[in-house]
Design a protein around this nucleic acid. Structure first.
Lengths: 102, 102
DNA sequence: ACTATATTTCGGTATTTGGCAAAATAGCGA
DNA sequence: TCGCTATTTTGCCAAATACCGAAATATAGT
């Protein structure tokens, strides 16, 4: 949980997660959304991976990143719980168009 | 919101918020719960104040800190919203004894 | 005015972080 | 094997962070 909140502390990383919510993307595709150098983004991916917020899958020469929504959700619920905020799952509605899930 | 998540990134600060959930406390009382120097804690208080997660009130020579639960709650809901996590308010159950609020 | 108490501000240090360019790695097709 | 593409790793730097002890500030009591 500590790693998750550390990861969430950076706006770029939150934006990455937000992009991944819509659909999984390769490192390159993600990079197109930012004006940061590839190595910089790669560093952010590493942080997100260590926090277990995303998973990476290799396809040929590219790497596809996918959001692990449940991990994020649990961290948020855990914090809410410990802080005494009454948050309840409402049903992960979800993506834009293409239904699907884990 | 950025400041809130930056503030939440540190375990000590999360613990401070957690302590303040139970009851408001002075800087000194809070400090007793940690093995950190006063100035260090004071720095953490400042971060929490800047994030608007706590409010400080001066009584005599001491300063009482109080958690601003709603700010934390809104930040969590905002993130959950943008990430497409279905979290709903369940009703801030609340403190131990003394009810009250802003 | 002086003293004691509570807390913050001030300097300083060590570690972490976020950024980059250049080099290394890995897979693919010729 | 060579070259091309995608991504990460390495090495570096500047800025931010977390910590501390000492000094400054503010308030209350005498």
């Amino acid at each position: 949980m500590n790693l998750v909140f550390k990861a969430l502390a950076d706006p770029t990383r939150r934006r990455i997660l937000e992009l991944l919510r819509e659909r999984e993307m390769t490192a390159g595709e993600l990079a197109e959304h930012f004006s940061l150098a590839k190595p910089t983004l790669s560093g952010h991916f590493a942080v997100l991976r260590e926090a277990d917020l995303v998973e990476a899958e290799k396809h040929g020469t590219s790497i596809t990143y996918r959001l692990k929504l449940s991990v994020l959700e649990e961290a948020l619920l855990a914090l809410a719980g410990v802080m005494g905020i009454g948050l309840a799952e409402k049903g992960t509605d979800g993506k834009k168009g293409k239904g699907h899930a884990t």
